[in-house]
């Protein structure tokens, strides 16, 4: 697949947001806030950055993406469907009895999923192992992992951050979806990790800060050109929970709230207007 241009990525991200919103509304459950915050990042990865092939999802030389914030599975499913890993019509089964599209992604059932996530603080250690495997075998495939910011409160992540620096994993990229909200409250009012970038740097990483909804900035940060050899890269992506939908944006109430019919209509209208 030819990598998408930033304009094409913006259009695709809007399309994915609309399909995700519809799926959450129809399923009556989901994590809409964190899905809207991570959509631009996932779109850039799957439609520009990752060397993956839907026809051969287990190609040994594929790039790896781990969505550690597994509760935003729905937007991963929509993205995988748009990219051709699963049928688009299957999104209607999200959360339905016996569907393989449950609330958290399962690698044994959904092609394109690399590891089963859900409990927080799991994806980054696994991604470190992936990147280390590529180093041991001399392979040039790359590993990317997306975490939430609240998730960085898990100690297992800092175990992995130390190991990644020690191992010199410059083939590893961590993208932190820094939307400043966790399930019940603001990060700042719970266990504040901000500013995150200096903490990564203190642990021996190369850290960059971007607007996580700006495609040009996302692509530049994900690029492997100009990186510091021997250092893993941490991207602190400043995002908004519920981004693109006015009444959800940066609103802690919309972690896993489901819009009613009126709210759904308004949200969809706003996304459609943004697509113009």
């Amino acid at each position: 697949m030819k990598p998408f241009t930033p304009d094409e990525l913006r259009a695709k991200a809007n399309q994915i947001r609309r399909r995700d919103l519809q799926a959450v509304f129809e399923a009556g459950a989901g994590h809409i806030g964190g899905e809207m915050s991570v959509t631009d990042i996932l779109t850039a990865l799957y439609f520009n950055v990752l060397r993956v092939a839907p026809q051969n999802p287990l190609d040994p030389n594929r790039d790896r993406l781990v969505l550690s914030k597994g509760h935003t599975a729905c937007v991963l499913y929509v993205t995988l469907a748009e990219r051709g890993f699963i049928p688009k019509e299957e999104i209607t089964t999200f959360l339905q009895p016996m569907s393989r599209l449950n609330g958290h992604p399962n690698r044994t059932k959904v092609p394109g999923v690399e590891t089963n996530t859900g409990p927080l603080g799991h994806g980054l250690p696994v991604a470190v192992g992936m990147a280390k495997a590529a180093k041991i075998s001399g392979a040039d495939w790359k590993t990317y992992v997306v975490t939430g910011d609240g998730e960085m409160q898990e100690g297992s992540n800092w175990e992995a951050i130390m190991a990644a620096a020690q191992f010199g994993l410059d083939n590893l990229t961590l993208i932190i979806d820094h939307n400043r909200l966790q399930q019940g409250a603001r990060l700042a009012d719970t266990n504040n990790l901000a500013p995150i970038a200096p903490r990564l740097e203190a642990f021996g990483w190369e850290a960059v800060e971007i607007d996580g909804h700006n495609m040009d900035e996302i692509l530049a940060a994900l690029s492997h050109e100009g990186r510091t050899p021997g250092k893993p890269r941490g991207i602190v992506a400043h995002t908004n929970k519920g981004h693109g939908i006015s009444f959800m944006s940066d609103n802690v109430a919309w972690h896993h709230k489901v819009p009613n019919a009126e709210q759904y209509a308004q949200a969809m209208a706003e996304l459609e207007e943004a697509a113009q």
Binding site: T115, P125, V126, V128, G129, G155, A160, A163
Partner: peptide
């Protein structure tokens, strides 16, 4: 991985994913 058992098992799973 140093004294870090959670990371140790996660890294093991990632190494397996990478063909080890």
């Amino acid at each position: 991985v140093g004294i870090a058992e959670q990371n140790m098992v996660g890294v093991g799973a990632g190494l397996a994913n990478g063909g080890m």
